[in-house]
Each structure stands twice: as structure tokens, then as C-alpha cells.
Design a protein around this nucleic acid. Structure first.
Lengths: 253, 253
DNA sequence: CGAAAAGTTGAACTGAATCAATGCCGGTGG
DNA sequence: CCACCGGCATTGATTCAGTTCAACTTTTCG
């Protein structure tokens, strides 16, 4: 797998219903026509290697990227080269849903692991939202959920300890991955390294590692290799003070 | 001024062009009809006392609140009673621009100082965005800017020191207040206490105080009472690694 | 004027960073 | 098939930025 490489039109294997459809249908009813449309979009995909940029800060995103498998993140680069991850993009998530309006990204985005990504160019994105109410509503809801996550992350960094922050992130990922069928009760595959986690949670890698050990010691969660085993979901949630309601915006009418 | 009190329909004094109009016109051209409409909205305002909630987490916001003078904040409440401020709402800012769609707020919002606030109920908000393209575009742009700020704050908390964070916030406030005519080169009135600042920047009040002293010692900024004196804007920006471009989203077409 | 909230200061303490070394594992090339 | 390499994970020792506690002053405001 050549880093940064991309090969065109990759067949969509496993996980029956497409992640994007699943995601948008969560908040808005999609017509059959809309579902079909989204499924067709998802065939024009690229398999992108790990750690390759999708969008670079300051550039024109030109449209939206849809993560269909794998995982990516939005991040901010500081002048001195240090980075900070400001959100995770999981299957079904859309990077630059505002690609229709925004011409300069205020963040970069990159894959974390090899990922299948569909690109929706600006004109098509506009057409989709203008012509299909279900899709427009779904996109809006997805954006609201994302914003709520952003606020939650901010509160997390602002007033929780390393252990609490980590537990909170693991709870959130459990919910989000379950929503697209990528996690069971027992746990899930973490698509990021401890280094990624540490730059997300604002701590050193050394302390990240120690915090993971502490979670294991408290029999809450156990990260072995790529797999996160949820040992005691209630305990994890209680450490994190986790309340999942922010992940599911309630829409009017 | 009774805390939590509110008296109806307060006359709009000073600062010529209404803050809301000024804010929305920043990214989108407003027709005369639209400007007039917004100005009329801004007459049905309430003067709200300091530290009164506008919206409570979990409640239905029912519409949007527009800050016309004063200042407010969005905040998150933790079970144990500690709070974290996730954004500031300055004159011209809109709280719950998504009031048209969202039925459950994932945050609370409260005034920081006595403020003039207009409320736009959901049906009216819908009508405004549906009928007036300029207003819809302005609102969208305002929301994008807000999101960019949220991401910046997250990166701030995640990877900057107390001094850097504080300098960054002061730079941001300078830009934002200048955009609505509430700050000059020399400085501005800070509408929040050191306690508020500390809750925002994720540090103890004691350390907040010491950080302010350090900024003064470095001849960058000097907070005296409510007034922030910018002593050396370049130095402040360099401490903060401040680049204001995130505050001005570039819109397509 | 008096009470409450905000700001200030010093001293002791601690969660997390930093430094540094070492182990592990998967991939690549010889 | 094995040796080597680079990224990731782990561990111990030390240091430091920021917290906590506690007392005190100043300002605000009813």
C-alpha cells in the first residue's frame, strides 16, 4: 500500500447498507430516489492510503468528501509543526458538507487508516441539496450533530482529567461506530494510534499510554493492539460522565 | 437591576447601524427590504440582567436569540456543578440560529452582563430564511464563522499554554469587537470577569490572574478593571500565533 | 453602609510533560 | 528466511506548569 496512493473506483464490499445512506437516514426520511442517488454516488469512490491529506488548511475543498470505510480526522497545524486533531470522520461522516459554500478550509483533513472515500464536487452537492429535501435535511442534521460533538470536546478538554477525557472519547466512539454497524457490545476496532489519541485529547503520548493502563486497571476498557475491549460499559460511562443525547439532535417538524 | 429580571421593549440607543445588520451584511449583500426587516426585529427587544439564562440545556430554544448589546455565552454544565464556557456571544451574534430546526439545545446560554436581546420565534425565523436569500446567506456565513471559532478554541485548549491561550482569546475578541465597532486600536471593554475567562480557558482563577499579570509584565496587554488595554498588538499576536483568517469564511459564488 | 462578588497573593502540592532508554512488531530487501 | 529498519508502545526518573488551599484586599451594588 503506497502511502498517499489512490486507485480508482473500488468495489464496495461487506457492510450491506451504505454508510452514508445509513447516516443520513438517521434523522431524515429518504425517498427511494434519494437512497438510490446516494448509493450511486458511493460507487465513484477512491481507496486512499493511510495518513494522506484530503483537504489542506487554506485550500478550496471544492466539494465534500464522504468517508465510506476506514477513518479520517480534521486537524489544525501550528506553525512549529505540532498538530491538533479537532474531529474524527468515521464511515458515513461527511467532511466539508459546506463545500457548497466554503472556499477556504480552516482546517486540514487526512485519513488515519486506508479508507474508501467518495468526493462530491460543489455543483453536484448544490444540486443534491436543492433538489432533494430528504438529503438536505439529513446533511443539516449531520452538521448539527457534528457541532454538538465539537462543543462536547471543548468542554472535555476544558474541564476533565486525562482519564475522564479518554473514557469520554471511547464512549462517544462506541455510540458513533454502533450507529453505522461497526461496533458491538464487546468493543470495536480503534482506527487510530495512541499518538493520534494523545493529540486529540491534548496530552503527551506517554501520559496517554499510562491513562490506557489505568482504564484497564479499573476494568473499564482495554486497548489491545487495534481493538478496544469494553470491559464495563457502565463504569466507563460513569468515569466519563457520558450522556449520549448530544449525539442525536432532535429536529423540529 | 434584579438578577434574571427583564423589562420589555427597550429603546435602541447609540451605535448607529444595528449590530445584527452589521454582522449579516459582512458576508452577504442585504437588500433594503432585508435591512429594514432586521431593523424592525431589533426594536422588539428585551433588556436582560446579568447572568440570566437565555436557553437551558435540554430545553427547546423555540427560536433564535440575537445579542444586540452586552454579551452572553454558551456553556456546558457538568453534573458536579462545574461549568465550561464553549463560546462567547457578542453584539450581532446569534444564539440558536438553528432554532428553526433544533428542538433540544445541547448547551445552555446566559448573559454575562446586562444585555439587549431580540428573540426571533421559530416560525418567523423560518419565514425569514425562506423568503430572504440575503438573510439566509448571512446566517449561514455567521454559522460557519462560529464553527471555525469552535475548532480554533479546541486547538487552543489542546495544545497551547495558559499564556498563549489567553493572548489568543484577547486577539480574537479584538477582531470580533472591532467588526461591530466596539473596539479601537487601544483596546476594548471586556464584558466578562476573570472567573469567566478562567472557565473559558480551562484554568483556575488563580492561574488566570497570574497569567494576566504575565501579559502585563511582557507589555502585551493590560487588563484594568473591565478595560483591556492592548499595549503591543504585534507581541500579543506573536505570543498567540494569531492568524485572523479563520474569523472570515470565504464563500463561493 | 454593608454584604457579596471579584481580584490578589503566597505556599504547598500534584497531574501531566519531558527526557531517555528499551521493547515490540510488521514490512522490506538481501 | 532472516536481518534490519522505522513507527509505535512501554517504562522509569525527573521536572514543571498549573492546581489547591487559605488568607486577605478591593470593588461593586443594592
Amino acid at each position: 500500500m503506497t502511502a498517499g496512493g489512490a486507485c480508482p473506483s473500488h468495489e464496495t464490499r461487506r457492510q450491506g447498507p451504505n454508510a452514508l445512506v445509513r447516516r443520513l437516514a438517521r434523522h431524515a426520511d429518504l425517498s427511494d430516489a434519494e437512497t438510490g442517488l446516494l448509493n450511486r454516488l458511493s460507487t465513484a469512490t477512491r481507496l486512499i492510503g493511510p495518513r494522506s491529506d484530503l483537504v489542506r488548511e487554506g485550500d478550496d475543498p471544492g466539494g465534500a468528501h464522504v468517508i465510506l470505510s476506514g477513518a479520517a480526522c480534521r486537524y489544525k497545524l501550528r506553525p512549529m509543526g505540532t498538530r491538533h486533531i479537532v474531529s474524527y470522520l468515521l464511515p458515513g461522516d461527511i467532511c466539508d458538507a459546506d463545500g457548497a459554500t466554503v472556499q477556504r478550509a480552516d482546517f486540514s483533513a487526512a485519513t488515519l487508516v486506508p479508507s474508501t472515500v467518495a468526493f462530491i464536487p460543489r455543483p453536484l452537492l448544490r444540486e443534491l441539496t436543492a433538489m432533494h429535501d430528504g438529503i438536505a435535511r439529513g446533511l443539516r442534521a449531520a452538521k448539527l450533530a457534528e457541532e454538538a460533538i465539537l462543543r462536547m470536546w471543548l468542554a472535555n478538554l476544558g474541564c476533565r482529567s486525562a482519564l475522564e477525557r479518554t473514557a469520554h472519547l471511547f464512549c462517544e466512539l462506541l455510540e458513533r461506530l454502533r450507529a453505522v454497524g461497526l461496533a458491538g457490545e464487546a468493543g470495536y476496532d480503534l482506527p487510530m494510534t495512541q499518538i493520534d489519541l494523545s493529540i486529540t485529547l491534548g496530552m503527551s503520548t506517554v501520559h496517554m499510554n499510562r491513562t490506557l493502563h489505568e482504564l484497564r486497571r479499573q476494568a473499564a476498557a482495554d486497548l489491545r493492539g487495534r481493538t478496544l475491549h469494553i470491559l464495563d460499559r457502565a463504569r466507563l460511562a460513569s468515569i466519563a460522565e457520558f450522556d449520549p443525547s448530544y449525539l442525536r439532535p432532535v429536529l423540529a417538524s
